[in-house]
Amino acid sequence: MINKDLLKRLLETFGPSGNEEAIREVIREEIKGYADEIKVDALGNLIAVKKGNGKKIMVASHMDEIGIMVTNIDDNGFIRFTNIGGVSPYTALYQRVMFADGTMGVVGVEKIDNMKDLTLSKMFIDIGAYSKEEAMKKVNVGDVACFYAPFVQDGDYIMSKALDDRIGCYVAIEALKALKNSPNEVYFVFTVQEEVGLRGAKTAAYGVDPDMGIALDVTLTGDTPKAKTMEVKMGKGTAIKIKDNSVLAHPTVKKLMIETAQENNIPYQLEILEGGGTDSGAIHLTKSGVPSGVISVPCRYVHSPSEMVSVKDVENSIQLLVKVLEK
């Protein structure tokens, strides 16, 4: 059964890359009592340790979400901005954004004759201010905002901003709660700054020095009309990564995941993502190398304010992770 209250809190909490304080506290409160040790490292990664006598396993899911940063405020109170992570001008246009203090705005655009000319440099945020002075009472250069899109669940689908990668955080939290007996020492790491270059995973993996790495993230699907050809479909099972632009899943880890899914009758799909990456891209290159893989939740409309996943896929991802960690 999906925990709607937890999902709502995870998905709606503010947390663009480099500004993960609020979402980190939500997660810390939720996992309190389920881990033997909880700490925050120098970069801001939240690390929960489930102690054991076996190998060290690092499970990484990133807390941060895409967003925007204020670069200039003009005399009429309109705000120019740059992207934090992969923000497309086509998905950002006319969307609402929310700053850390709750200030709301809408993304507008200068007059353009052809939508092909749409770029972030021609766009602005309108917070309803009539002058620079009025705007600066609420927003300043360097302030960041996330997209505003409340959590929705209807039957088997969930729709929200920040499913990339709060749904991975949800999978990790529920697996941490469910994991009773693991022969290994498991480090559940909720990482920062994944959307701007896997930065939190890089430093966390160096500190943990794991024997194996597992990232939890979303992946694209090939099941919408005229989508780019891809085997993964929403609602058809958790996805076990073969490759993306950041990692070739280690054969040992890949085999472990596939065999575990088969042994436990967990629906799964094999994922080849021809773009993007996950925290495993940083983990597997740590020190002398770490065998790493990825459990992915199929997600439509990634990096938009209306990302969509299947409840069944989420539940199967949790089950697979728990069974893998119990081996």
Rank of each mutant, 00 (worst) to 15 (best):
L43M: 10
L43N: 00
L43S: 05
N45D: 11
L46P: 13
L46F: 04
I47P: 01
A48H: 05
A48W: 00
A48F: 06
A48G: 04
V49D: 12
K50C: 12
K51C: 06
G52N: 13
G52Y: 05
G52T: 08
N53H: 05
G54D: 13
G54M: 07
G54S: 10
K56L: 12
I57Q: 09
M58P: 00
A60D: 06
A60H: 04
A60E: 09
A60Q: 02
S61K: 01
S61H: 00
S61D: 00
H62C: 09
D64S: 00
E65N: 08
E65P: 05
E65W: 12
G67E: 07
G67V: 11
G67S: 08
I68A: 02
I68P: 15
M69L: 13
M69Y: 06
V70E: 13
V70I: 15
T71N: 03
T71Q: 06
T71S: 12
T71V: 15
N72H: 15
N72W: 14
I73A: 07
I73H: 06
D74L: 04
D75A: 04
D75W: 01
D75E: 14
D75R: 07
N76W: 09
G77K: 14
G77H: 11
G77C: 05
G77Q: 14
F78R: 15
R80E: 08
R80A: 13
R80W: 10
F81V: 04
T82S: 12
T82P: 07
T82K: 09
I84H: 01
I84A: 06
I84E: 02
G85H: 01
G85D: 00
G85P: 00
G86Q: 03
V87F: 02
V87I: 06
V87C: 05
V87Y: 01
S88H: 03
S88P: 00
P89M: 11
Y90S: 03
Y90K: 07
A92F: 07
A92M: 05
L93T: 08
L93F: 08
Y94A: 07
Y94C: 05
Y94I: 08
Y94E: 10
Q95K: 12
R96Q: 14
V97C: 07
M98V: 15
M98K: 14
F99N: 06
A100H: 12
A100N: 09
A100M: 10
A100K: 15
D101P: 01
G102S: 06
T103W: 12
T103L: 13
T103M: 14
M104D: 08
M104A: 12
G105S: 10
G105E: 13
G105Q: 07
G105N: 09
G105A: 11
V106I: 15
V106G: 05
V106M: 14
V107Q: 03
V107F: 02
V107H: 06
V107Y: 05
G108I: 06
G108V: 11
V109K: 01
V109I: 13
V109Q: 04
V109R: 02
V109E: 04
E110W: 12
E110Y: 11
K111D: 14
I112Q: 13
N114K: 06
N114H: 11
N114F: 08
N114V: 04
M115Y: 07
M115R: 06
K116C: 05
D117N: 15
L118P: 00
L118H: 10
T119D: 10
L120Q: 03
